[in-house]
Nucleic acid binder design. Structure first.
Lengths: 145, 145
DNA sequence: TATTGTTATACTCTATAACTATA
DNA sequence: TATAGTTATAGAGTATAACAATA
């Protein structure tokens, strides 16, 4: 029998840190629906809007891959965003099978509003010292590499 | 005209830190469905399982509040978890309108498995120094207060 | 009367399978 | 043949409104 079967990789400190991250993730998960509803968006639509950067068309397939969902979902998701005038499908010049997504001006404005609301830090973050806030920025930057 | 209407509260550093957090949140949002599918759970069911701690019965209404969703969702969510033998509804002794949720032994084991997988830190976290990992633990702890 | 949870309904999200157009 | 996206279908997640049981 392999007694190491359930030994988790990672140092004790990194495990402890990630446990706290998971707490934050679930808290944020509950946070998104009400925030999205204020903008008359669903959480999934927020995710899509977050991923389409202004001036950076993205193929639908790449969106499906980043969302880790089936391509058929993206069709409906984009249908609804397009019917609201937030995004547009454009044929890709390189490969006529591919459709790329671009934000409309309305979509771009709503995206800015969304990100502005989402990235407003909670009060607890303001209670950290400036040096702690900078340490957090440095650490998170490396986590996202 | 109020030119401060769109000025975001929080120091520049805390805003920058929270922008990075939002990046992590969306990355994790895409991460959950495949992880949940391995355990034959949905993301929402994972959230519920995370919130029901073993030996700590929780009223359905409180679950709805923490999930920030309507009470009627919890009915269906719990229906499916109960039909799989993961949780049980129990009448509350204090108020007969209230039903509290408890994990079954199977549910408790699956919850442990879920949290174990979710809290396994990504490789990028292991690349931080031990002192950085400890700083992160200290900071996240205060964020969650 | 107010509150907890359920039911009925409608819409969105999601995966699977079959399809169309293009490569 | 293989790939990108769509359509059809079914099940899960979600909100609203009406309801039953209890407070």
């Amino acid at each position: 029998m392999n007694y190491n079967a359930h030994v988790k990789p990672g140092s004790p400190d990194s495990c402890e840190a990630w446990q706290l991250m998971v707490q934050l993730f679930f808290a944020q998960r509950a946070n998104l629906p009400p925030l999205a509803a204020e903008l008359e968006l669903s959480p999934a639509q927020c995710h899509v809007l977050h991923l389409i950067e202004p001036g950076r068309p993205i193929p639908m397939g790449q969106l499906a891959e980043t969302l880790a969902c089936h391509a058929s979902n993206v069709t409906g998701l984009v249908d609804r965003l397009e019917s609201r005038g937030l995004v547009r499908r454009r044929p890709s010049p390189a490969d006529r099978r591919v459709k790329v997504l671009v934000l409309t001006q309305t979509g771009s404005r709503l995206r800015t509003l969304l990100l502005d609301r989402m990235t407003t830090p909670p009060d607890t973050l303001g209670r950290l010292s400036v040096s702690e806030q900078r340490a957090l920025v440095r650490i998170l930057t490396r986590l996202l590499e």
